[in-house]
């Protein structure tokens, strides 16, 4: 009986979904409703209003600034949740099969791998910074650059040959926490500056130079904060 009910429920839900999909406008056509209302305005006004040559960044940081602020906050909240969960659970019990697993993963680091990682790290960091700083002109931006930077730091932490601590532990704990919070903090602070100078939250200054500076500040804040959060997630999971 229960199985039958479940089947009916799934069939009804599936029918609704299939009907909705069938009635969707043809994908990829230019006259579907998605493209005729809001998007058209974004594409037309995005370059002047957004102050960025990359339309995606212009929409993210101008029309959708509050959404983007929400996204930055979500990443940060994820780190807090993982930190809370791992510290609540306490140190993992190292016993039985888990112990064997951990032992086999902790072989000494190969000098070849260590050398190549150290050789490539500065180039990866430069690329990450380039992606962050040029995000308003080329594909890329704070999130992408931050993830590349975070990936490089995690790579270094994996292969630096030390199993006792990660690189960001070299920083004093207070500073580390401020850097992890840099994304939402910088974004919020620049949003408030907009409120002070022009009366609108998250509005960009009119002068092109200051507008570009604000954009770069946003991208750097999101990028460096995001990288710190990713390294923190990795560390929380590993040390937990």
């Amino acid at each position: 009986m229960r199985k039958f009910l479940a089947l009916v429920l799934i069939a009804a839900l599936g029918a609704v979904l299939i009907a909705a999909v069938v009635n969707l406008p043809e994908p990829g056509t230019t006259d579907s409703p998605v493209h005729t209302h809001v998007s058209a305005g974004y594409i037309k006004g995005g370059h002047e209003a957004g102050g960025a040559d990359n339309l995606v960044t212009a929409v993210l940081l101008n029309y959708r600034a509050i959404d983007t602020f929400g996204e930055v906050t979500v990443i940060f909240t994820a780190l807090i949740a993982v930190l809370a969960a791992t510290s609540l659970a306490g140190p993992t019990e190292r016993s039985g099969t888990q112990n064997i697993d951990l032992k086999t993963t902790r072989v000494p680091v190969s000098p070849v791998v260590s050398f190549v990682v150290r050789l490539m790290a500065p180039f990866i960091a430069t690329f990450a910074l380039f992606v962050m700083l040029k995000g308003h002109e080329l594909p890329g931006g704070g999130f992408q650059g931050g993830v590349v930077l975070g990936a490089m730091l995690i790579l270094l932490a994996l292969f630096s040959g030390r199993t006792d601590k990660t690189d960001d532990e070299e920083l004093p704990p207070g500073l580390r926490n401020w850097i992890r919070a840099a994304g939402p903090l910088v974004f919020g602070a620049l949003g408030l500056t907009g409120l002070v100078f022009s009366g609108w939250l998250f509005s960009l200054p009119d002068h092109p130079f200051w507008r570009e500076m604000v954009m770069i500040g946003l991208e750097l804040g999101i990028g460096i904060g995001g990288a710190a959060v990713l390294v923190g997630l990795f560390r929380a999971l590993r040390e937990g």
Partner: peptide
Amino acid sequence: ALVLLSSPTAGHALARAAWRAG
């Protein structure tokens, strides 16, 4: 240049990890 650096390194790391794991 990046591929020529990273691909042999990845192969080396894999083979070495397997050897050290027995």
